[in-house]
Amino acid sequence: MENFTPVSAAVGGVLIGLSAVLFMALNGRIAGISGIVAGVLTPVSGEWAWRIAFVGGLFAAPFLVWLFSERPIVVFPHPLWLTIIGGLLVGFGARLGGGCTSGHGVCGMARLSKRSIAATLTFMVSAIVTVFIVNHLLGL
């Protein structure tokens, strides 16, 4: 467990939570990223600009960190073709299931929504099983 980083994890988690709370306080919405992105891909009049702005904020964040610190690390442990299949399934599954790690995992769970608790438990288990198969049975 030498790769465990509890302090930065807690600080980052509070920032994510703060963002979710502010979004509800100011814009009155759940900070569900897959829903926000889906609205960028299928624009509805008057509902497009704020979505692009939110995505722009997500995209700008690592540059802000990079100004004051080192360039954030992004390393993919699995081959590119698995990353691409993963992207397809993430997009499809998030739309079918009505949310992702942010919408269900953070915002929905914080509302004690039964749907979000069920969704979060389900994708946690399926992700853990997937990684077990890929890393230990297939060795990819």
Partner: peptide, 19 residues
């Protein structure tokens, strides 16, 4: 909800990234 979440989890495990 459950099928979507299960598929999402497989993708999350394969890519190591969510949206």
């Amino acid at each position: 909800l459950l099928i979507g979440a299960a598929i999402f989890g497989v993708g999350w495990g394969l890519a190591g990234l969510c949206p």
